[in-house]
Amino acid sequence: MQVQEQIDIQTLETLCRQVRRDILRMTHAVQSGHPGGSLGCAEFFVAMYQAIMKHDPDFNMEGAGEDVLFLSNGHISPVWYSVLARSGYFAVSELATFRKLNSRLQGHPATEESLPGVRIASGSLGQGLSAACGVALGKKLDNDPQFVYVLMGDGELQEGQVWEAAMFAAHNKVDNLIATVDCNGRQIDGDTNDVLSLGDLAAKWRAFGWEVIESEGNDLKKLIIAMQKAQALAKKGKPVINLMRTEMGQGVDFMVGTHKWHGVAPNDAQLADALAQLPETELGDY
């Protein structure tokens, strides 16, 4: 808790607002991308890179002695790219190249162009937990005490591979692994409850042998406390999962309460409306 007291929540909330502007402007510029889930996870990425993780923006692939984070639901790349850039991994101006030809900022995260901060390609869903689990095994072999984090979407849990990895991590006591699920209850075709209901996720993960916590993903202070709790629960023989409630489209009134903005970019008028709700901060637009 003492770490938390040192964190200036107001500064981080300002950063969240700037990140949301980045997401909207990036997707608008190329009229493609996934603003909804990205907006919902602004607090998560800001919390991780600004308050929770020990990490070095002078990126190297192995990340020895660092906490490392994997994004499994790669379609929310805009929020990750924005936070990586604003945490010093690459120039903020590079956000303007998102999804354009010859960019390092591919539609879905990739390593082929060597974008700092990205350690594996993602986007084809269900694969990130396995990879993160492999990294956690590697850290254990190297006696590296740092954590491995991974974010998944809730709809992504419909992929069977996630549960293969869940079983493996519990059986092998991969307890340096802290997963988070973005529980926004929505996916591209509709609400998860309508498409393929996920049931009682907390009970499911507990039944798979994981330590489960639940958190409020759009409340920065509560989320930071939750992630600190996750750290405290880790390294006790069980992998840890944080079921994080968020709102898809958080921060823009007409984007919340619907799955419509999962993979649709705002047009000119919608962008203007959205940005008016999120005034530019002293950090400045890219």
Binding site: L129, V135, G138, E164
Partner: peptide
Amino acid sequence: ERFFQVGIAEANMMGLAAGLATQGKIP
């Protein structure tokens, strides 16, 4: 200590291997 029995779960095995390779191992 360098052998991982993954069970009948080949998709997870490929992901684990990718993760281990990220850490400089040769899976």
